[in-house]
Design a protein around this nucleic acid. Sequence first.
DNA 1: CCACTATCTAAACATTGTTTAATTTACGCG
DNA 2: CGCGTAAATTAAACAATGTTTAGATAGTGG
Lengths: 200, 200
Amino acid sequence: MDHPDQQEKSYHHGDLRRAILDAAERRLTESGIDAVTIRACARDAGVSPAAPIHHFGSLKGLLSALAARGFEQLVARLDADLATRTGSGPSLLIGAYVAFAVSSPKMFDLMWREDVLDPDGGDLSCARRVALERLQAHVKPTQASGDERIRAIRAWSIAHGLATLLQHGRMQKALGAPGSALSTTQDFATLAYDDGFTSL
Amino acid sequence: MDHPDQQEKSYHHGDLRRAILDAAERRLTESGIDAVTIRACARDAGVSPAAPIHHFGSLKGLLSALAARGFEQLVARLDADLATRTGSGPSLLIGAYVAFAVSSPKMFDLMWREDVLDPDGGDLSCARRVALERLQAHVKPTQASGDERIRAIRAWSIAHGLATLLQHGRMQKALGAPGSALSTTQDFATLAYDDGFTSL
DNA sequence: CCACTATCTAAACATTGTTTAATTTACGCG
DNA sequence: CGCGTAAATTAAACAATGTTTAGATAGTGG
């Protein structure tokens, strides 16, 4: 009935594309990837199953748009965390990366589930490139000699590995909880490496 | 007709459980996780869809049994690689871990896809524990002080992160191919860290 | 006012996991 | 040997999914 003046106020619904994406994100964070389904999101939005397909092409398209949102959220988080501290450095960046993964586990999962995502191209590819460039910019702040690149690989690897393993809960079960509960960005940063950038 | 005297020569088929698992593994490595399906594996084995369910309980049960195979293959690989070199150390272990992930990408994927695996308990839980204990035994060879545990976390994180990112092909796309093609265990070991155990 | 195109619906199709009841087969035991 | 019991397997059905098709609807531009 009422048309809330949102972004691209479309023909019938107003902004069905956004409504479906919102439903998908809600389902993702609350119930996991398997719960975000064409038909369920269509039900949530009160439309027929063919409507989401018209907007996103396929389930992969919908999930890809959702993952693009995730990369945008990651960039926002990195920027926010890096703004609070002056001396940036890769350690804090790793901490922020891991903190995002732990605070948004389902979304982080989706972002790397390439089997359910559309092959490269489109909004997802763009959002992902932005996020990874942001990461690289802070990991190798000056130029990229051969050694620098190796260092960047190590920093990214340790961040991604720590995020993945923490998320799966395997690390706690295998190694025991390392001291207090891990939550802040600084916790993950020191866990990643506490002896500064040069040692890694 | 002929009963090949395999393991538990069962009632009708001889060893249907193994036959289904073999079909599942073939489908996994050749076509990916989505291709290993109750009905497809049943077709491959020439039985009805309810037969795999009887042996594995559900699709999750089948995939869990398959992942258990994967962890057994991982420990075999770790043992084989560690046997060739005398001074073990964590560097070589990381290399072997990453080499397994790169040489068996689909299987490595499945092993950490907990959303399609049965919750802990059963053969998978056992096989996984064996593998992770093997990893820990080499990462912290003596005792586990607080600092040692942090070091183990870092070693495992860098191994898992490097494996995951290499597998997704994101690292090559983002950072460019780091020199020659990476294939041997030693390549991954030096990529992980070349300054020995103490520096990490 | 009239084409036109973007949205959306309704209905169908093929495929999947799983359940149910029934059937076939092997084994243990008298 | 024979019988009963339990395991293994099948056939048929059910609900749910992604996707396609044809058609209806509504807003836009000429």
